[in-house]
Design a protein around this nucleic acid. Structure first.
Lengths: 222, 222, 222, 222
DNA sequence: AATGAATGAGACTTCATTCAT
DNA sequence: GATGAATGAAGTCTCATTCAT
């Protein structure tokens, strides 16, 4: 029975259980927010951000539209949270790589492998790769870009280190990172889990192709 | 001198209007259509397809909204024409490459160079690379994908030929093409003409990085 | 007290709005939908379906345009509901006639009387008679026609029964029903409640004129 | 003479060929107008007045849209001309009936037969019966109704005469005419030339059914 | 006599968001 | 915490009509 679920009761509820209730509520908040962005990420990837309406999102979550606005300020904030989760996901996975796994090239290769895997198999990761942040307001965009830049910086640092230790040919680290990350991001565009290519397969092949070009050429001074 | 032909000048031309160009009310289906898609391509790239309203497009062209519908059946048709022009542009440039310029690898390298150049410097070309065709109705999408596939097929054929003549290492041609084309397409995403990186510079670097990984490894029997 | 039930009062009721009727923001899907189709029926009859814009309808109801779309999927659905209500109205009234009120002719006469009364005095009934269902999409049209056919079938059945029991002259039941129903439907076109002719008067006269022609001719073998 | 008609060329034309040309032009004008309203009537009957766009009409006639405005002031005028032609058609056919063909009933029967035939077989006639004149502006509507009234008046006169000479039962001539004409007009709504019922068949049956009810009841002193 | 091109007005519909409960 | 109901703004598109030639 609702005109709202618990109108009469609610007013009493927060008087009755002061502390625990709050924690539980907070926990609930977190859980709900997670559920929202998870579903949202899925829909954004399936139909695009613009074409995913708040109505659809609410319907999928089996909650009412205003409920979404209880958890998030607006649609944009949901997307931003997707990005944030995606970037966290990526950093999580990449951060786990041991920082002393050989020379720069070796570490770059692992990095590429891992990044490709995340982008292909994790939905939040795919959001980062796929959804154009130009959909965001300029303020939110700046925030997201700051986060994204960290990943790019990692790539660039690895390349630079590889060049320093001789395991990577002399090249423009910025362009090299862009090429590598771009190819992987783009894969997020066309990869379909239902297709015949396996993520591992793609990740492996991309690692070879994309890092192979950075190998120092034998006997060449370039 | 039509807006549609003079490509070198074109970079500034999206502001030009054939409306009232020479004398008033010249004949001009062709001319006008060209002007529309040129401006549309520009706006699509700037704000995205969905967020570019027909109103905005009309305003930019300094014509009324219904006038657009005199030249195109609907918004989708405009996007399709952008794609078509872009693909023609790409094929034009790639087709000009002499088909006997050395072995597979050599030809692939030229191809990459040229493709990157088009995608970075021609607006229609960028449309092909950047605008998600999932915005289209399924019918139009099929048409566009058929066209796009031809370009992908070219890449794949070059790789296959390179493998055959030994100039390219044994690899999955499909994945190799995807990696290469993807990296370039992605560049369309972040490249800003106003930035510090020159298109030629990027194209050159990408050529090295992306094809380098396909070189047969010295001393490897594979 | 719902707008939808009190038919006697209803003739003036198309101005009533359940919006803010009792207290503010009562529950009321049903109530509101009824109010919408009641007002819609009135406007459709006054200006025609095509020329009745959703804007006008909303204005009359003193709600915003999108609110209409909260209650109905689209304009067509509103018309379909008008039809449905009208047909229900007609069937209600006709169904109340006792099925054993004499021979076929006697029952037909009652039926004509009642049908004419509904078509002349009930707005939903008039919708069924007057609004061309070719305005509908082919799918909706099929649905409406199925409903309409039931009424036509009733007429035809009565005529057939009358022929069987000798109370009606031998004739083509289909054409007879069409003639009778047509004359009545057409009356919906020109009848104005504000005119000098009373509905009862018209219904009575039509009954005589339209069924008189079906009387078996004395001493004539047809 | 409207602004739209003969501005540029006319200035020279009427100096050069003063008489013949004018006649020819007038003849052409007539012919073209006829062609327009003929096609228009067809389309109006097929899709309805509102849904028949001037574009479609022009396309069907293989002329340009502005050309229509050369021959007619606006869409409404085209409909009015359809009505006018239809009414002329009806009057033509009805006027041909000899005014001394027996008593009132006999003449009424012929009249019904003829009216039904025209409404079912002539497109202009069908326009009069079918197209709701509420589509017209109030001014045009008045004109059309004046014309229509003449037909109605004929019906009513025949009934009155029939009552006078005893061949028709005492009844309200107005309602009798409405019933008769209404049934026939309505037939224009559902009759499809491609269907199985022949116009003659329908006309004959309607004549019997609709006039039968007006026969004076045997043995009744009224 | 005829037309290619253009337009103002307005149609239906969708969406992100908020109000009042 | 949650929701049924509502809305302002905007979107795509169509139409009758007219301008300039």
């Amino acid at each position: 029975m609702s005109l709202g679920t618990t109108r009469p009761i609610a007013r009493k509820a927060h008087e009755a259980e002061p502390w625990k209730a709050f924690q539980v509520r907070q926990r609930g908040m977190e859980l709900k927010r997670d559920a929202v962005i998870k579903t949202a990420a899925h829909l954004f990837l399936e139909h695009g951000y613009q074409k995913t309406s708040m109505s659809l999102l609410a319907t999928r979550l089996k909650i009412s539209k205003p409920a979404l606005y209880y958890y998030f300020r607006n649609k944009e904030e949901i997307l931003v949270e997707c990005y944030r989760s995606g970037i966290a996901e990526i950093e999580d996975n990449l951060g786990r790589l041991s920082p002393d796994a050989g020379n720069g090239m070796a570490r770059l290769r692992l990095y590429v492998l891992e990044y490709a895997t995340v982008v292909l198999t994790h939905e939040f990761g795919r959001c980062v790769a796929m959804i154009d942040d130009s959909e965001l307001s300029s303020k939110a965009r700046r925030g997201v870009r700051d986060l994204k830049r960290k990943i790019d910086a990692s790539f660039r640092r690895l390349v630079t280190e590889g060049i320093a230790d001789g395991s990577i040919a002399d090249c423009n680290p910025k362009l090299a990172s862009f090429a590598i990350a771009g190819a992987i991001n783009w894969a997020g565009t066309w990869y379909k889990p239902s297709g015949e290519l396996l993520p591992e397969e793609i990740a492996q092949a991309f690692m070879e192709i994309l890092t192979g070009g950075l190998r120092p050429r034998a006997g060449k001074a370039t």
